[in-house]
Every structure is written in structure tokens, then in C-alpha cells.
């Protein structure tokens, strides 16, 4: 009645590293931390733009962008499952 359209479920590859759930939770927490860091960096960056501190503004905006990117890559890696 039900067709398995996604193919057979593969067993865990022997030799591939197994990560404990606690590591996954730690990665989740780190991704949230990076998100908050990015939010803070963006806020101070926009504020620095208003204070005519262009170097600081650009630096904080770049840091915020990289933090966001890292947070995204940790939770939703490209090409990963």
C-alpha cells in the first residue's frame, strides 16, 4: 500500500564517526550563541555608523555577517543531511 519513495534506509557506515547527542546539543547551543553574537555585532555596527566611526562599523558588520554564516552552516550544512 505504501511505497518507499525515499529508498531503503541505510545503516550507519562502519568507520564513520558517531557523535553523541550531547555534542549535537552543544553545536545547537553554539549556533544560538553565534546568532546572538551576530545580533549584537550588527547593533553596535549600525550605532558606530551613526558615530562616524566607519572602520569600527565595517568591522562589526563583517563580524556579524561571518557569525551569521557560521551559525547557518552549523545547523544546515550545504550538501549535508
Amino acid at each position: 500500500m505504501f511505497e518507499n519513495v525515499s529508498g531503503p534506509v541505510l545503516p550507519h557506515r562502519p568507520g564513520a564517526p558517531r557523535y553523541a547527542p550531547i555534542v549535537s546539543r552543544a553545536i545547537d547551543a553554539f549556533a544560538v550563541l553565534l546568532l546572538f553574537a551576530a545580533a549584537t555585532a550588527f547593533g553596535f555596527g549600525v550605532h558606530a555608523l551613526g558615530q562616524r566611526d566607519d572602520f569600527k562599523a565595517v568591522y562589526l558588520l563583517v563580524i556579524g555577517g561571518l557569525s551569521l554564516r557560521a551559525s547557518t552552516e552549523l545547523l544546515r550544512p550545504r550538501g549535508g543531511g
Binding site: Y19, P21, V23, S24, V32, F42, G65, E73, P77, G79
Partner: peptide, 29 residues
């Protein structure tokens, strides 16, 4: 726009586990 979109993604994607392996730090990350 960036912070709202990523916050929504982080909020929803936390705790999702792949069917084949646990979450891990990929080379891109």
C-alpha cells in the same frame, strides 16, 4: 532581514537530526 531570517532558521532547525548521522561540524562550517 538577515537576522530575522537566520533567527527563524536557527529556531526551527535546532534539534533536527539527520536520519543517517548525528549533527557534525562540516568542512564548510
Amino acid at each position: 532581514v538577515a537576522i530575522s531570517a537566520v533567527a527563524a532558521m536557527v529556531a526551527v532547525d535546532r534539534g533536527k537530526r539527520s536520519s543517517r548521522s548525528s549533527r557534525r561540524v562540516t568542512p564548510a562550517a
